[in-house]
Amino acid sequence: MSTNVAYYIPHKATWPVIGTAGLVTMLAGFANYLNGSSSVGPAFMVAGLVVFIIMLVGWFTLQAHESETGMYNHDVGISYRMGMMWFIFSEIIFFAVFFSTLWYTRNLSVQWLGSGATKELLHSAYQATWPTNGPGDVGGKFEPMSAWGLPFLNTLILLSSGVSCTWAHHGLLAKNRDQLIKGLIVTVALGFLFVMFQAFEYHEAYTSMGLTLGSGVYGSTFFMLTGFHGFHVCVGAIILSVVLFRSWKGHFQPENHFAFEAAAWYWHFVDVVWLGLFVFVYLL
């Protein structure tokens, strides 16, 4: 602001209200679907999703264009970085809720179910061990997921993708476009490979281990944590694909590449959440 290039204030934005309309249509449709509407509900969901995707494409195309035509000064860049940083913070809190749920269940409530008067009066046969599907044996017999198969491989994949992402960033800073693009291709490929393995692991759980979302509190916490994480990996990989496309089009300069930074931050955040999952969901 104290510089000569003014802080860019856009006027007359149409994408936000379009995106809102898409989002609320999608959610209203989903709610109707959950209430048993098999025709109107899904139709609204799809229509809303399409509008929402159109909004994302339109809004981000506009932002990329404005960025490349030099409309953002240094201060605008700082606002965007703060925005991304605190958005990721809110996401960390969202995951913290489910990690806390896992901690509370394992260390407190399951112990309470299996001790004292609760155990004696209600279900004396129940052994409070982890993993558990509770005194009601909800969801039937299941086998817990081991850490040393696909999950360990997925850990290596995500860690390597973090390295390749940083390698691409170094390429960007050194004006080595070849390294930038190669690094991003590797990162995106590893991201989608992770998702594929995760899908394979879910398939295995449902078909041959008896482990489902309904397998008591173990199944609930396992699928909720890994599911939300998998969704975030998908989103991150899509963001990185867009960044790859823009790199290939010649966007980004060493001093102006907020979109790359934001995508990289997001990717590292997804990476760190996975390490938490590997330790607390699979390993311990």
Binding site: G139, S220, M224
Partner: peptide, 20 residues
């Protein structure tokens, strides 16, 4: 998810806890 997707976060029978 407890209502519509069979999870047991707040269901003691499945090892969960409504107090959570």
């Amino acid at each position: 998810t407890d209502k519509f997707f069979h999870t047991s976060f707040f269901n003691a029978a499945g090892g969960g806890d409504p107090v959570l």
